[in-house]
């Protein structure tokens, strides 16, 4: 393990800070996030409201802290799910080959071809927006990408000498996956995880813009930006803070990945 550079240390600190905010929100938020605490809407920073107030006069600090729960929570859960499903399918396809590989590759390829925001829109508007639905939709949308990556890596590793040696020893497929293939693909998959995490955050933001994200009074950061966007013209903190929150989180996650892995990444936003 090499030492982390100052930039990656800072990135790590940002990610950890947001994660803590998400976990501790109920205890550290000064107000309930849905309560209207003042008639002064879109107010500036003040001692009582350190991040100002939103368009209805709710405390922004509390809303941003609670927003971290939704943004981080949903993004982390759905990205993990997507990676889990993608890697499982990808490994199975690479290890078994044949018709399974063929069918899985075709079906997941077909899924990739649907624009992600529109796919999410169709599913969410028919099932109704709830957190489990949002998580499931994001996970399904980003599974094909993870599948493609892990299958490609697994196929490459599969062809390598040490795997051939193991196979010659008479090891079974499960052993091969667990002992030889998996350890060698952790790094690229992790890199991929970070990128997908960012895409999920942006997908959620897009859903919020279309009114299909987290339902009020709860709000993820994207929703917070959207509902206060009218404050943009006079620089209200209510719109700038959540936007900064998104930017810091995604930049930090990206910077962290860059320092952990130097491998190339070639993926798309679908």
């Amino acid at each position: 393990m090499r030492r982390l550079s100052p930039i990656s240390m800072a990135a790590l600190a940002v990610v950890v800070a947001w994660a803590l905010a998400a976990v501790l929100a109920p205890w550290i938020a000064p107000f309930p996030p849905g309560r209207i605490v003042t008639r002064d809407s879109l107010a500036d920073l003040s001692f009582r409201f350190p991040l100002g107030t939103d368009y209805l006069g709710r405390d922004m600090l509390s809303r941003v802290l609670f927003g971290a729960r939704y943004t981080l929570g949903i993004a982390a859960l759905s990205t993990s799910l997507a990676c889990l499903m993608g890697v499982t399918l990808g490994l199975t396809a690479a290890a078994r080959g044949g018709w399974f590989d063929m069918a899985a590759s075709r079906i997941l390829d077909a899924m990739i071809s649907v624009p992600s925001l529109l796919a999410a829109l169709v599913v969410v508007s028919s099932l109704g927006s709830s957190i489990p639905v949002l998580i499931a939709v994001a996970a399904v949308i980003y599974t094909p990408g993870a599948y493609r990556l892990s299958r490609a890596i697994a196929v490459n590793i599969n062809a390598m000498d040490f795997v051939a040696v193991a196979r010659a020893r008479g090891e079974g497929t499960l052993y091969l996956i667990a002992a030889e293939i998996l350890p060698n693909m952790i790094l690229p998959v992790l890199t991929d995880f970070g990128l997908r995490f960012v895409f999920v955050v942006l997908l959620l933001t897009g859903m919020s813009f279309l009114g299909l994200g987290i339902q009020p009074p709860n709000a993820d950061w994207g929703t917070l930006v959207r509902e206060n966007v009218e404050g943009l013209s006079f620089g209200a903190p209510a719109v700038i803070t959540p936007a900064l929150a998104i930017a810091t989180l995604t930049i930090a996650v990206n910077a962290l990945i860059d320092s952990v892995a130097t491998g190339r990444r070639d993926d798309d936003i679908r």
Partner: peptide, 25 residues
């Protein structure tokens, strides 16, 4: 309507009424 419903939801929470705001386009 969204804002009014959020206020009702907040007030409802205090009397044990569980409103679920569902925003549609």
């Amino acid at each position: 309507s969204a804002e009014m419903a959020v206020m009702l939801q907040e007030a409802g929470g205090k009397i044990g009424l569980n409103l679920e705001v569902r925003r549609v386009p």
